[in-house]
Amino acid sequence: MIGFLQNLIDAVSLGSIYALTALGIGLLFGILRLINFAHGDYITIGAYALIVPSADVTARLLIGDLPLIVMTPLICLIVVVAALLSDVLVFRPLRRASSPTLMIASFAVSYIIQNGVMMLYGARPKAVDLWSGANTQILIGDLRVPMLQLIILVVTLVLMTTLTLFLRKTPYGIQMRAAAEDFRMATYLGVRGNLVIGLAFAISGILAAAVSLLYTTQSGSLSHTMGLPLALFAFVAVVVGGMGSLVGAVVGGFTIGIIVTMLQAYLPPELRAFRDAFAFAFVILVLLVRPAGLVPSRTSFERV
């Protein structure tokens, strides 16, 4: 029982990371119909911004050494700027392009960022020690809970609540929801398209920055492809949850987190190496039963 609860906590904390990533991807998809591959690389940028640019194996912290209250906004700012730049340089000229074209363009952006990071920092993974105090464990009854997992959970809840409040209560949030519902109609009614899209990029940048801080603290290492698996799992989470639905993205993220962790825990040892294959096969099975995802969105249907 304790073992299962322990696994459940692992699952929820991994799920939180996927859910935050999927939320950033889902937000942009809702408004722009863009599946943003580069989202994983925004996470990479956030993580590498912590250290001194060099090709050395041991990383020296730069921004990462600043107090938390300065570091967090600074990393958010850097990632938001990167996200907005990718919008201005690549996605804005493609506003009228089809969804597959946008997807391929973001694939190109991701490839450019990855190799850019590699050029600046070298191809070898680096070890970083960010915030090692967070890895202490707390005992709750018989349960051993790493502090970091609690932090991840709290941060995720705070970000999701803030985002929900922003989307429901503020004028900009309402404009964003209107744009996600029907972009063309919203612009006819006076919503400024580029502003709303810029906001969506900025918010997805903030979410990516949060993930990069949490994930780097947890893994303790950096590599120029570190954002890739996160983005890939988050994509699949978005599809499983139901494209175009933010609730779906979160549900999908947690689902994937739970599937991966439970497979890791309960697969027979000789099959454990195939964890990802089982996870994705399971996803395909889910889609076979529910092609529109777990939380089908009203707006995801093809309009005639």
Partner: peptide, 23 residues
């Protein structure tokens, strides 16, 4: 399974193919 999905979802799901094979 994959061809039951609508266009964009199918594209993303083809990633699953790449990752399953790789794993």
């Amino acid at each position: 399974a994959l061809m039951r999905l609508a266009g964009t979802a199918a594209s993303i799901a083809t990633f699953a193919v790449l990752m399953i094979v790789n794993s």
